[in-house]
Design a protein around this nucleic acid. Structure first.
Lengths: 226, 226
DNA sequence: ACAAAAGTGTTAAGAATACACCCATGT
DNA sequence: ACATGGGTGTATTCTTAACACTTTTGT
């Protein structure tokens, strides 16, 4: 019935890339828009998805071009949700497929259109363009819930880490503090971790044992923390 | 950079509409395709989403036109996932936004293109066109997991029901049997239900008390069954 | 009286929570 | 020796799981 005169809506992608570090806690990649609409405002890196390109491929391309991040560096990329957003283009409504990406030690190269790609700590975010604050809130909520029954954090942690570092990553995402002894019991019982022989000596105190993840892919388990 | 020559991909929607009844258990709405590709094969009701129409609106329109179901009759409609599917149209790849719908006592009107909309019990499904078997499996998995921490079943149950009926709905979706006494304890403790004064007398045995849901909207809780 | 589904409690095992001190190191 | 973060165990409470008989009705 549509054949012939069918006109599809504009299709876009937006990406929510999180990173965690001991210094900054959880942060998210934003770019500063260099043209209208919302010129000058901060936004999630996003762009058009054209015919012949999967949304996943478009996400990689856009993230690299505008966000200065190579998706191969991300430990996990997952589709988040599809928003029938406010028009990105004044001519009509746009449909945006959103993705979440998780990584570590990411250093955004300057975007090809000089849009200042920068990781912003979640604590001190600027106002965001479009409905991007909603998208970000939704991404964070999903990340939180996955935290409690999967090994998602593998994508945020360095290859070797101490249990204290891991706990503070959990705390940053969960948004509350966890009991040290109970956390260790459960995380070790989950089977996600492998103890190594290496130790991490830093500062004037007992060195900490280093652990690694058994798998660098998403695994499900029973609840890890309460 | 795309302005001017930007050509968006084809955008489609597909819907997975579930219904539950004591006789059939859980069933899903399928239509029989009356033209190529996959002519004669069974498929989820789906169709194009055109510029200016939200995917949610397209879902309603298509479900009504091809599936013979009025979305107002559904107790819950939720976006499921967006698939970069196999081309629906030989000319290029298509992006399909999928929705899950839940209802009860649904009687599909004949589709406007005589596509036999029919509810099929999940036990005896035909082969499905495209990647629709994957979409259905994913929808079922999501429904299952929501079962355990939300009141989703409100959308599948009649306004008044016995605890035994509710339990068999849970069992149909969970795919296993549950202990009667433990089920009753937990479901009553969840606070989702309201006891009524009415009784349901049927057959040569003790009549059962009728219950109703407190809310006809999605609510979250702790785990309901184990 | 019997067949058929409704309804009802208790016990044991396991999971979650709360909580405080010693250990190894650098300065 | 002291300051700092690393590391460890137990008791209590709550949750889950397993399990069988009595009640009410229609025929």
């Amino acid at each position: 019935m549509y054949s012939g005169e069918y006109v599809p809506p504009t299709l876009t992608i937006d990406s929510v890339v999180f990173q965690w570090s001991a210094e900054q806690g959880l942060s998210v990649l934003l770019i500063q828009r260099s043209y209208e609409p919302f010129m000058g405002a901060w936004a999630l890196p996003g762009g058009y998805c054209a015919a012949g390109e999967t949304t996943r491929d478009a996400m990689s391309r856009v993230l690299s071009a505008k966000g200065g991040i190579d998706t191969d560096r991300l430990g996990l990329v997952e589709q988040l949700y599809t928003f029938d957003t406010v028009a990105r283009d004044p001519r009509g409504h746009a449909v945006s497929v959103t993705y979440t990406g998780l990584g570590r030690d990411l250093k955004p190269a300057p975007g090809d259109t000089t849009q200042n790609p920068t990781f912003w700590p979640l604590q001190k975010l600027p106002d965001l363009a479009y409905d991007h604050a909603d998208i970000l809130a939704y991404a964070l909520q999903r990340l939180r819930s996955k935290l409690s029954y999967t090994n998602v954090v593998y994508a945020l942690m360095p290859p070797l880490f101490t249990l204290s570092q891991l706990q503070s990553c959990y705390e940053a995402i969960a948004g509350r503090s966890l009991d040290k002894r109970n956390f260790r019991k459960k995380i070790l019982a989950s089977g996600f971790l492998k103890e190594t022989e290496k130790m991490h000596a830093t500062g004037a105190h007992r060195p900490a044992r280093l652990y690694e993840f058994q798998q660098q892919t998403l695994q499900t388990s029973d609840h890890i923390y309460s």
